[in-house]
Simulated assay, not measured.
Amino acid sequence: MLKILGKSSSINVRKVLWTCAEIGIPYQLEQWGSGAQATDTAYFLGLNPNGMVPVIQDEGATLWESNTICRYLASKHQRTDLLPTKPIDRAQVEKWMDWQATELNNSWRYAFMALVRLSPTHADPVALSAGIAQWTHHMRLLDAQLASTAAYVNGAEFTLADIVLGLSVHRWMAAPLEHPVLPAVQAYYELLSQREAYLLHGRNGLA
């Protein structure tokens, strides 16, 4: 059985849990991370030298990086609706997955740590203002894309890109900041909320 190592409240672990729920993959979840088993031990660092969750073990192999894990699971279970096989169609999905990981995630880090985690090392008001502005800028980019599709991020069909972005949209919605009106993002949030797996692992009260 697939084993997932990671704290169930982690946004990146929840990507994997949501993917499993969409596909119908049974799994064993072990709680690792802050407040659970430590990830700086020799054992865990042997699985992922970055000391980060999630990590999966499947068929004798170990994988880390949440978006990579989601791609692997969709490919293994031949869910071409979630991750197409045609190179250009797959690249269109992966483009938004990579944008989520490299651009959108980086834009919210300071603001999230200051406003949600209440980190004392993220208390600079100038840096916070800049962080909120960057986060808002990227959410406006997403809003424009969703306005163009009037459905999911890559078009009419739900894909892996919506899993990783859906978690980020919930984080935006849950953050205690002044939100500009982004009608396409709001419509997308409600569209995703029609999926039981999103209510379990995305819009579930956790930021």
Rank of each mutant, 00 (worst) to 15 (best):
S34G: 04
S34R: 06
S34C: 05
G35S: 01
A36I: 09
A36W: 11
A36S: 10
A38Q: 11
A38L: 06
T39P: 05
T41S: 15
A42H: 04
Y43V: 12
Y43N: 13
F44H: 11
G46D: 15
G46L: 03
L47G: 04
L47D: 14
L47W: 05
N48W: 08
P49R: 07
N50L: 09
N50S: 12
N50K: 07
N50Q: 11
G51T: 14
M52Y: 09
V53R: 01
P54R: 03
Q57V: 07
Q57T: 09
Q57D: 01
D58V: 13
D58Y: 14
G60I: 02
G60V: 05
G60Y: 02
A61Q: 15
A61H: 06
A61C: 12
A61E: 13
T62G: 10
L63A: 05
L63T: 03
W64A: 15
E65G: 05
E65H: 04
E65R: 05
S66V: 05
T68A: 15
I69N: 05
I69A: 05
I69E: 13
C70M: 03
C70L: 08
C70I: 12
R71M: 13
A74P: 07
A74S: 11
A74Q: 07
K76E: 15
H77K: 10
H77Q: 11
H77M: 07
R79P: 12
T80H: 15
D81W: 07
L82G: 12
L82K: 12
L82C: 13
L82H: 09
L82N: 07
P84W: 02
T85Q: 13
K86W: 03
I88P: 06
D89S: 02
R90F: 00
R90Y: 00
R90I: 02
R90C: 13
Q92C: 00
Q92V: 02
Q92L: 06
V93R: 02
V93Y: 02
V93I: 04
V93A: 03
E94S: 00
E94C: 02
E94M: 01
E94I: 00
K95P: 00
W96G: 06
W96C: 07
M97G: 04
M97D: 00
D98A: 01
W99G: 04
W99V: 03
Q100F: 01
Q100C: 08
T102G: 12
T102E: 10
E103M: 14
L104Q: 08
N105M: 09
N106L: 10
W108C: 08
Y110G: 09
